[in-house]
C-alpha cells in the first residue's frame, strides 16, 4: 500500500498535498496496490473529498498534541501508522514539513528516502526515483533498496489529477507522545502567495536600482496572482526579505511561469529557477546570460516594459 502524508496549516489542506495525493495514487496504480492518505491533526476540509485525488481511504489521527509540528512526535506517529497499516511506500511533499518529518521516519523505519523527487519511480529494474541534484543543475536516478520506501516530492513537480472518487475516513488509534518543542509565536505574511507553492513568480534583481522601485513588481505580481522573489544581492542589500531570495543558496522553485526583471542570470541564480516551465526575461542588456536560459525575452528598460506588461495583463483578464 502507498501511504500519502497529507500536510495542512491553519486548518486547511495545503496545495502541495494534492500533488502528493495525485502522485501517490499514480504510483499505487503502477504498483498494482491501493493508495491511502494519512492526516495528523484536524482540518476544516471534509476528508472524504480527498478521494477525488485517487485515495480509497483517509486515516486520521486526531490529537491536540499534533496541532503544532514537532518533528519527533510526527515521525513517531507516521512510523506507527506505517507499521499498523502495513504500508510499503510513504509519500511526503518536500516542503517545510516533509523536510522535518520524512528523514526522521526514514531513520526510524530504516527505510531508504529519496528527497526532492521530480517524477514517478521507474520500477522496471529496482525502484529508481529521479531527483533534483546540484541545486537544479542536474538530476540523479536513485535506487531505493530497503523494503519500505520513502519519497518526498518536490513541490510543483506533478500534475494534480481529479478522479471524481470519494474516500472512506477512518480514525486511527495510535499513541501520540508529548511534544518537546514549544511554539511560542507564529508570524505569517498574510495574503501573500507562498513562493514554493506559487504557479507564477515575478522576480526582481539589482537592475531595479532600489527597494522603492518594487511597487511595479508587486503590481505585476498582483495582477497575475503571483509570488514575488529576488536575486541574492537584492536580499543581501535588504531591499527585499531573505525568504524571497531564490537560487543555489536560496530557495529553489519550479513554477509554471518565472518572470525575471533586471536579473543578469548568473549560474547560481539559474540553478534555483531553471526548472520553471516557462521563463520570461526582461533585461536592457541583450548580452545578459539569462536570455540563454529563457523561453521569451524582451530587451528593454524594465521601468518602461513592466508597467506596460501589467496593463496588458489587466486587459487580458478584464
Amino acid at each position: 500500500m502507498v501511504l500519502i502524508f497529507v500536510d495542512h496549516s491553519d486548518s486547511e489542506i495545503k496545495k502541495s498535498s494534492y500533488e502528493v495525493l495525485s502522485y501517490g495514487a499514480a504510483l499505487a496504480e503502477k504498483l498494482g496496490t491501493s493508495a491511502e492518505a494519512l492526516l495528523l491533526g484536524a482540518v476544516k476540509d471534509d476528508l472524504a473529498t480527498l478521494g477525488n485525488y485517487g485515495v480509497s481511504k483517509v486515516h486520521q489521527v486526531s490529537n491536540d498534541a499534533l496541532n503544532n509540528l514537532d518533528a519527533q512526535v510526527y515521525a513517531r506517529a507516521v512510523a506507527d501508522a506505517v507499521t499498523s497499516l502495513n504500508a510499503d511506500v510513504i509519500v511526503f511533499s518536500h516542503n517545510q514539513t516533509g523536510k522535518a518529518v520524512a528523514p526522521r521516519v526514514a531513520a526510524r523505519l530504516k527505510a531508504g528516502l529519496v528527497a526532492g523527487a521530480v517524477a514517478l519511480p521507474d520500477t522496471s529494474n529496482g525502484f529508481v526515483v529521479k531527483k533534483n541534484v546540484f541545486s537544479g543543475k542536474a538530476f540523479a536516478n536513485v535506487n531505493i533498496t530497503s523494503a519500505i520506501k520513502i519519497i518526498s516530492l518536490n513541490p510543483n513537480s506533478f500534475q494534480v489529477k481529479q478522479t471524481g472518487g470519494t474516500a472512506s475516513v477512518e480514525q486511527l488509534n495510535i499513541t501520540v507522545s508529548e511534544p518537546k518543542v514549544k511554539v511560542t509565536s507564529v508570524n505569517k505574511v498574510k495574503g501573500e502567495v507562498p513562493l514554493t507553492e506559487a504557479e507564477i513568480v515575478v522576480s526582481g534583481g539589482r537592475g531595479l536600482k532600489g527597494p522603492e522601485n518594487w511597487k511595479m513588481v508587486e503590481d505585476l505580481a498582483h495582477e497575475l496572482h503571483a509570488a514575488t522573489a529576488c536575486s541574492r544581492p537584492v536580499a543581501d542589500a535588504g531591499w527585499r526579505p531573505h525568504h524571497e531570495h531564490v537560487g543555489q543558496t536560496g530557495i529553489q522553485i519550479a513554477p509554471n511561469l518565472y518572470i525575471a526583471i533586471g536579473i543578469s542570470g548568473a549560474i547560481q541564480h539559474l540553478a534555483g529557477v531553471n526548472r520553471s516551465k516557462t521563463i520570461v526575461v526582461i533585461n536592457k542588456d541583450p548580452e545578459a546570460p539569462f536570455f540563454k536560459a529563457a523561453d521569451y525575452g524582451i530587451v528593454g528598460d524594465a521601468f518602461e516594459v513592466v508597467p506596460k506588461l501589467t496593463d496588458e495583463i489587466k486587459k487580458l483578464k478584464g
Partner: peptide, 22 residues
C-alpha cells in the same frame, strides 16, 4: 546504505529564446 545513485542526467536544453520587441 538504503539508496544508491544509478545514473545522472542533465536537464534538457532550452529550445532558444523568442524575443519580443520592447
Amino acid at each position: 546504505a538504503l539508496t544508491n545513485v544509478v545514473s545522472y542526467e542533465l536537464p534538457a536544453p532550452k529550445a532558444g529564446v523568442k524575443l519580443v520587441a520592447a
